[in-house]
Nucleic acid binder design. Structure first.
Lengths: 346, 346
DNA sequence: TTGTAGGCGTTATCAC
DNA sequence: GTGATAACGCCTACAA
C-alpha cells in the first residue's frame, strides 16, 4: 500500500482536491497551504499513481517505437533521432523489439503494451498479412516507418530506397566500370532488400549487363554471414571481374574482410559497395562507397508525425519520403578514377 | 470514446463481470455465454483499458531497462539479452535512454515513466549524487547494472572489470612484452573506465613500468575521437615502443585504423588492445585482442533478478558478479609469439 | 453460472 | 481558495 493522495491530504490537513491542484500547478492555491502540501509530499515521498492519472487524463505522455530488432547501428540511429525529437515534443519514448523466438505473433505481442502509450511508431520490414491485419484494427495513433501497408490509411515515413540504390548502381556501372555485379541482400521478404534488388535489376537491364539468378544472394544483414559467404566466392568473383553490391554496410564489411584475407586488393581486384552509411562504412580498409540513409532523421520525423496525429487525430494522412545520398569513398574504385585524372607516372 | 467493457457487456447481453471473467480466463463461465462474449469482443475490437486494469491489478507486466545511451554494440547486446529473458519470464520490456540534452535531470526524467512499470533495471555508468538520491527514494523494485550505489541496499549485477582488465594488462606486459602502455579511456567519471584505469595502474606498478600522467587519455568511447587522437600520436607511440590499452573496442578500432594509415604495422610497430569484445573486435585488421564482457548475459541476469524481486519484495538483496574473459587475437603480438614458437627461417 | 456493488487513485465540476 | 463528489474502466467479493 504505497502512499496515495489521501495520505498527503491528511498529513497536510487539506482535501485531496487541493493536493491535486498543487500537483498540477493550478495557480489558485494559497501560498501557505501550497507550502504545507508540498512539504507533506516530500515527507511522504509521494508519487502520483500513473495508472489512475492515465485513467483520468487518457494519456501517458509516452510514445513507443517498435523496431524489428534493436541490434546494430542502423536501428540505434533511428532510436537516437526519435528519442531526441520525442523529448523535445514533451514525450518520453520507449522502444521495443518486435522480435521473438517464434515471430508469427511477435509484433502483436510487442505491441500489446500499446495501451499504456499515447501512440506508436512501427517499423515494418517484413510485409506479412498479419501485420496489415493488426494495424488495421489498431486502436491507437500510429505511424509506419519504411513500409507501406495496404488496407488502412496511415501516416508514413519512407526512405526512397529505389532512388539511392539506382544512384549507387549507376556509379558502379559507370565510373567504377563494373561489368558484372553480385547482389548480396537481406532476406527476400525484407522490404528494403526488395527495393534495392529492384534497382539492381533495373540498372542492370538499362546497361545491358548480364542478369544471372545465381548472382543474387539472400543473407541476413550480418557481418559474419557475409564474411563466410565471401570467403568461398571471393576469388571467383574477382577473377570474373565482378563487383559486389551489399545491401548494408555490415555485410559489405564482411566481404571486404574476406577479400583482404584472400590476398585480394579492394577495390583493384574486387569492388564492394555497401548501403546505409553506418559507422562501419568508415571502419573498413578501404572505407566503403555506400548510400547514406538519414536514419536519425527518419526516427525524428516519425515522432513528429506521430505527435501531430496524437494532437489531432483528424489531420489528413501524411507521407514523408526521405532522400538517401550516394557517398563515394574508396571501396569501388575511386583509385581508378584518381589514376585517370592524373598523368601516368613517367 | 473508445469501446469499454460496458459496450461489450451490452452487446453480449451480459453483465460486465461476466465479460471480465471471460477476459481473465476465469473458468467458471458457461460455454455459450463465453462464446457470445468473445464474439462481441471481436466485433467491437475491444481492448481492455490498461490504465484501469493497472489500477486494479497494480501491475502492468512491463519492466523497464534504462541505459545511459542506446547507441552502439555494447548496449544493443544488453538489450537483446534482457529482452529475451524478460519475455521468457512473462514480461514485456521497454527500454529507454537516460541521456538528454542537459543531463543533470536526465535520469530522473527518463525514469519518471516508472510508475507504469512493475520494475526497472538501471544501468549506472556515471556516479553522481543525484542518482544515489533518486534511487534512494525510488518507489519501485529496481536493480542496478554495473555500478554500486551507496546508501540503499539493492540488487545489482556487476562485471568484474578489475579482473578482466588485470588479465589483459598482464597479457600486455607479459607475452606481448610491452614496456610502456598508453591508456585510452572513456570519461574520467565513467565507472567502467575508472575500474579499468585502476587495473592499468595496478599492473603497471607491480611490473615496475613507468606511470606517466600523460599516458592516460580520457575520451568518449567513440571510434572517431580515438581515431583523431591516434592520428596525432601514433608515430610517437610506435617509436617509443608503446602499446595501447583502449577501454573499448570502438576506440581500439579507431587507433588501429590510424596506425595503419600512418603506415604502421599492428602489432609489430604498435600493439593495440580493446575491451568488451563487441563485433568490431573481429572487424579490424588485425582482429583485436580484447576482454569479453558477457553483455547479453548481464542484461538477462538483470531481468532475472528484477523479476524475482517484483515477485518477492522481501527477498534478501542479491549481487551477481560476472566474469569477463581475456580474448587473445592478433592486435597485440600473437604474431610475435608465433614467431618465437617457430624456428626462425633459414 | 451470473449479476450487483464497492473500490482502486486521479482529475474535474461543482458548490461553498 | 477550498472541499465534496462524480466520473474514468476495470476487478472481485458477495449475493442471487
Amino acid at each position: 500500500m504505497p502512499t496515495s493522495i489521501v495520505d498527503v491530504a491528511k498529513l497536510a490537513k487539506v482535501s485531496i482536491s487541493t493536493v491535486s491542484r498543487v500537483i498540477n500547478r493550478s495557480d489558485l492555491v494559497n501560498q501557505r497551504t501550497r507550502a504545507r502540501v508540498e512539504s507533506a509530499i516530500k515527507q511522504l515521498n509521494y508519487q502520483p499513481n500513473a495508472f489512475a492519472r492515465g485513467l483520468m487524463l487518457r494519456r501517458s505522455d509516452i510514445v513507443g517505437l517498435v523496431l524489428p530488432d534493436l541490434h546494430g547501428e542502423f536501428y540505434s540511429e533511428i532510436i537516437r533521432g526519435a528519442n531526441l525529437k520525442a523529448r523535445h515534443l514533451g514525450y518520453n519514448l520507449v522502444v521495443s523489439s518486435a522480435r521473438d523466438g517464434d515471430d508469427s505473433h511477435s509484433l502483436l505481442r510487442a505491441i500489446q503494451q500499446r495501451a499504456l502509450l499515447d501512440g506508436v511508431a512501427v517499423m515494418v520490414s517484413e510485409l506479412t498479412d498479419r501485420i496489415a491485419e493488426v494495424l488495421a484494427a489498431f486502436p491507437l495513433p500510429y505511424v509506419v516507418l519504411d513500409g507501406e501497408i495496404d488496407g488502412t490509411p496511415h501516416d508514413s515515413i519512407v526512405i526512397d530506397q529505389r532512388h539511392g540504390a539506382v544512384a549507387l548502381m549507376r556509379h558502379l556501372v559507370g565510373p567504377a566500370g563494373a561489368k558484372r555485379i553480385i547482389f548480396v541482400g537481406g532476406l527476400a521478404t525484407n522490404v528494403d532488400t526488395i527495393a534495392r534488388l529492384e534497382a539492381y535489376r533495373q540498372v542492370l537491364a538499362e546497361s545491358g549487363l548480364p542478369q544471372e539468378a545465381s548472382d543474387v544472394y539472400h543473407l541476413d544483414y550480418e557481418y559474419e554471414t557475409a564474411y563466410r559467404l565471401a570467403r568461398e566466392h571471393v576469388r571467383a568473383w574477382a577473377s570474373a571481374g565482378c563487383c559486389v553490391f551489399a545491401a548494408n554496410d555490415e555485410m559489405a564489411a564482411g566481404i571486404v574482410a574476406a577479400a583482404s584475407e584472400a590476398g585480394l586488393n579492394v577495390p583493384r581486384d574486387l569492388a564492394v559497395a555497401g548501403f546505409d552509411d553506418t559507422r562501419v562504412a568508415r571502419m573498413t580498409r578501404p572505407p566503403l562507397t555506400t548510400v547514406r540513409v538519414p536514419m536519425a532523421k527518419m526516427g525524428a520525423q516519425a515522432m513528429e508525425l506521430l505527435c501531430q496525429r496524437i494532437a489531432d487525430p483528424q489531420r489528413p494522412r501524411m507521407q514523408i519520403s526521405l532522400q538517401p545520398e550516394l557517398v563515394v569513398r574508396e571501396s569501388c574504385g575511386t583509385a581508378l578514377r584518381r589514376a585517370a585524372d592524373q598523368p601516368a607516372p613517367a
